[in-house]
């Protein structure tokens, strides 16, 4: 909602900056980082549908993300065109989301988390061990990027623009969804599932549809990923990837539109910076996770503000308020 309530000019400036980014950034390395941020923002927005608005924490979304990637890459590898590969990848991912959803929605809360984790591991297992299909640890190369309407996406600039376009479509869809009756229904199932049922809603089906919606955009993000990276390996399906996506959602603040985008930016930039100096990304990922959960459960941005205020009061020598008014 915060995104919708922001002044129109702020939104306009942000979009103008994004559209002109390649011209004032120049360096292809940074343009590529921007593409990464946007594609992971799509992934994080998709996951946030479940985590933020549905109250369903999935640790198996890397499985769906990788499944789209593998389906696309393998179709291309088999000699099919981009359109066929992309459509197949999305169809496979939505179908897999249906299977994931039906199984995981046997439960909610921790049970949901465990089942999605296990399902994600199955995808990882297939990617890693089913050598004849997935080429195992060696991964699959994606040799070409598509050229929609004759425009090649081979350059960093053009790929960035294509990613930005997809991102904006995803963002608009999400913004509509958040304000829509269906969005309200989903949030209702998160807050009072029992009451929603008594009011005439099919809670299970609402959650399943949300899962499919989330799966669809996860698939889109997965396709963007293989086109960006031009390679996919089992690591993409690993628990770390699910955890990274979840970190993007919770670090920015759940159940907001801006949160997952900010979270994607934070995580991608940090990953690029950390990886440039040390090989300790997992350690950093773990530390951030622990720090956020322990000290800033509401997300990095609101959490920093709160901690800053506390520190400020402490410095001024006034007793810090024990409890903030709860939302």
């Amino acid at each position: 909602m915060s995104w919708m309530n922001a002044p129109r000019w702020a939104t306009g400036v942000a979009i103008a900056l994004l559209i002109t980014l390649p011209f004032w950034v120049g360096n292809p390395y940074y343009i590529n980082v921007a593409s990464q941020i946007l594609l992971f923002a799509v992934f994080a927005l998709a996951l946030n549908v479940l985590v933020g608005y549905g109250g369903l924490v999935s640790l198996g979304h890397a499985g769906l993300f990788a499944m789209a990637g593998y389906a696309g890459a393998l179709m291309l590898d088999a000699g099919h065109g981009h359109l066929a590969a992309d459509l197949t990848a999305i169809a496979v991912t939505v179908l897999a989301s249906a299977v994931f959803g039906v199984l995981a929605l046997r439960s909610t809360g921790i049970g949901f988390l465990m089942i999605t984790l296990a399902l994600g591991q199955i995808v990882w297992g297939i990617a890693y061990r089913w050598q004849s299909l997935t080429n195992g640890d060696n991964g699959v190369n994606v040799t070409t990027r598509p050229a929609p309407f004759g425009i090649s996406l081979a350059s960093a600039d053009n790929f960035y623009f294509a990613t930005l376009l997809v991102f904006l479509v995803a963002l608009i869809t999400m913004a509509l969804f958040v304000r829509s009756p269906f969005g309200a229904s989903l949030r209702g199932t998160r807050d009072q599932a029992r009451r929603m049922n008594a009011l005439g809603y099919n809670v299970w089906l609402i959650r399943l549809v949300a899962f499919l919606f989330s799966g669809f955009w996860t698939g889109v993000a997965g396709l963007l990923f293989i086109y960006y990276n031009q390679f996919i390996s089992p690591q993409v399906a690993a628990l770390q990837t699910s955890a990274e996506a979840l970190l993007m959602v919770i670090s920015g603040g759940t159940a907001t539109l801006l949160g997952p985008i900010a979270g994607a930016a934070i995580v991608v930039i940090m990953k690029n910076v950390v990886s440039a100096y040390v090989e300790r990304w997992n350690l950093v990922l773990g530390v951030i996770f622990v720090a956020i959960i322990t000290f800033m459960p509401e997300g990095l941005v609101p959490g920093s503000v709160r901690l800053w205020k506390l520190a400020w009061r402490a410095m001024r020598g006034r007793p810090a308020k024990a409890a903030e008014p709860s939302a």
Binding site: F177, P181, F182, A184, S185, M196, G200
Partner: peptide, 24 residues
């Protein structure tokens, strides 16, 4: 919004992800 949710429960609109609920 609480009362709106009660109304929405009986309306087919509850599945619509595109329109703005507050404009209904």
């Amino acid at each position: 919004r609480n009362v709106t949710l009660a109304l929405l429960g009986l309306s087919q609109l509850r599945w619509n992800p595109f329109i703005d609920l507050e404009q209904e």
